[in-house]
Amino acid sequence: MKKPLDLENIAKTIRKIILTISYESKVGHIGSSFSIVEILVILYFSFLRINPRKPKWHDRDRFILSKGHAAPALYATLALRGFFPQRNLSKYCKDKGLLEEHPKHTVLGIEISTGSLGHGISIGAGMAISAKLRKKNFRVVVLMSDAECDEGETWESALFASHHHLQNLIVLLDYNKVQAFGSIEEVLQLEPLTSKWRAFGWNVLEVDGHSMPKLLSTIKKTAASANKPSIIICHTVRGKGVTFMEHTIDWHYLNPKKEQYYAALEEID
């Protein structure tokens, strides 16, 4: 029998990779990356029907990281899942490097280039309706940030997906309640968030976005949604895993100093 994967350990490794490649390249977005680690682990190691050996397989599930600025988390996950060698991670944001600050579709395993907010659900909805019309079984999963709810396109796509009953579309909303320049509450209030999405005709679920068992059982529940797209509001913590990075806006852009880097590594371990 295959040994079950140690998901907690994978999550730890991903956090260490995020921290290290960000530290080495002096590029930010650590906080936004840390808040989605468990979500990505569950998607890539337990949920998505994908094959790293056949990344362009026609019937694969499609995943779109709409919050493109959390690319370090996606790169680390894709490397650990075998889409590309882990040594490529050291070329993150370097001159003549391989990986940019935001995801690019030319990297194996990445469907869509993102970085500008609010595009993910529209593209995902296009893929999902295309799958329905062609009677394909693949699912489309979009991971978005809470601040993407500021974008008008998000709500255009929310109307579209529910009107067309795209039950094969699953959106995960990383609700860490902090955006680039302040808290959601200060900048542009989103509450009541669940009732907004429900009013737009979505199947709305909520979960602790750092509990992997709960994430998995919640995402599996979306299969029961007969004729609505699903959104899972994932309650998360910006900077999760390193105490001095948690809940603060600083680690949207900041990069750790040497002492901070080692202190953070130690805490993750």
Binding site: A125, G126, A128, S130
Partner: peptide
């Protein structure tokens, strides 16, 4: 805006 994104999703599938 949504229409263009949807079109992209259609085209890539």
């Amino acid at each position: 805006a949504n229409m263009m994104g949807v079109a992209c999703g259609f085209a890539l599938t």
